[in-house]
Design a protein around this nucleic acid. Structure first.
Length: 347
DNA sequence: AACTCGGGGCA
DNA sequence: TGCCCAGAGTT
């Protein structure tokens, strides 16, 4: 705790420890590094300073603010939770564990983090940092990426919980993991727990935390088309659940075996939107990695030929001017060639 | 209990 | 390149 007081970073969400701003930060910080979150957090709080503001916003606007941050279900769930609090709970965020965790997108980590930091409730957090620190401190053999890990580390974290100031205890443990007890080359010389650390004493910090082997991720070939018609281009909106739910994209899909990217592009656009396209012109190839697979996407300009849009898969579509594309939330893989479109079209 | 869900920082 | 990150929901 003393180490934390002297060494903690000055982060934007540490300025206001009310429930809402802490909640915003914890949702964004889920599986996302501090450095990445900072600009998103500042802009989000500026746009929606209070829960009521967020509840009144369109989902689409919230997704736009989340664009590039990933795990878009976080934004959808948080937005939904804000509306539940305003509509059903009188605008009061529950400050008890059961009531708060019941909200969509709030699991054990967020409930424990928000309530300990913003309401001094005695709940220990378990995140990647905490698991790493405790694993080394006690030479815990439970692999941190195993299903049983959360429960095991939660029990350990609770035994050490400092109930007089659980928020600082939790943040101190996480900060220690982020700054000192790092995944690679931990700085044991700077660690306040060094004397008590099992892994350091045995010189095996690089063997902890234990981790189960990961699977390799396959690569998928994708073809996407920028369909032009009367100076506008076609974009479609993905269904709200699943991968990249609710985001807009250029229509396309998987290139089947024995099929050329051009054929796949025309076929996928016809299947998804019902329209016929042709006169394909290669624009670029984009590489992008997701958690469970990688994609190689060939992007084509296409001309609209015939047919009316009848959606099969996407939940919406629009013909938009290239200058208006920035208004819609797109996946990163699409943003990678967005600027190129403008350059080519204007030429 | 296993699988799905983004994107970036970093060695 | 591969690893890992202030995890939660679904199956």
């Amino acid at each position: 705790m003393g180490w934390y007081r002297d060494n903690c970073r000055q982060l934007p969400w540490r300025r206001d420890t009310a429930l809402y701003p802490v909640w915003v930060s914890e949702v964004m910080l889920q599986q996302t590094q501090v450095k990445t979150v900072i600009p998103y957090y500042l802009k989000f709080m500026e746009t929606w300073p209070d829960l009521e503001d967020l509840a009144a916003a369109d989902l689409e606007t919230v997704l736009k603010a989340w664009e590039g941050l990933g795990y878009y279900a976080r934004a959808r769930n948080f937005h939904k939770a804000a509306r539940i609090v305003v509509r059903n709970l009188g605008g009061i965020i529950p400050d008890d564990y059961k009531g708060f965790k019941n909200l969509p997108g709030v699991g054990d980590y967020i409930a424990s983090a928000v309530l300990s930091i913003a309401a001094a409730k005695p709940h220990a957090v378990v995140d990647g940092n905490v698991k790493r620190v405790l694993s080394r401190l006690l030479c815990v053999e439970t692999p941190v990426n195993h299903s049983a890990a959360h429960k095991a580390y939660k029990a350990i974290a609770e035994t050490f919980l400092y109930e007089k100031d659980p928020g600082t205890y939790n943040q101190a443990l996480m900060e220690l993991g982020a700054l000192v007890c790092t995944p690679k080359r931990p700085d044991c010389a700077a660690c306040p727990l060094a004397e008590a650390c099992c892994a350091r004493e045995k010189q095996v910090t690089d063997l902890f935390p234990r981790r189960m082997a990961k699977k390799k991720v396959p690569t998928v070939h994708i073809a996407a088309g920028i369909v032009r018609k009367n100076g506008k281009v076609l974009i479609t909106r993905r269904k709200l659940d699943g991968l990249l739910g609710g985001l807009w994209e250029f229509p396309g899909g998987k290139v089947e075996p024995k099929e050329s990217p051009e054929q796949a592009c025309i076929r996928e656009i016809r299947e998804e939107t019902g329209i016929k396209t042709g006169n394909l012109q290669f624009l670029t190839r984009v590489f992008h990695a997701y958690t469970h697979f990688k994609i190689e996407m060939d992007v084509f300009f296409c001309d609209y030929i015939s047919g009316r849009v009848t959606l099969n898969g996407p939940i919406d579509h629009k013909w938009v001017h290239v200058d208006q594309l920035y208004q819609y939330p797109f996946p990163r893989a699409n943003l990678k060639f967005m600027e190129l479109i403008t350059i080519v079209v204007c030429k």
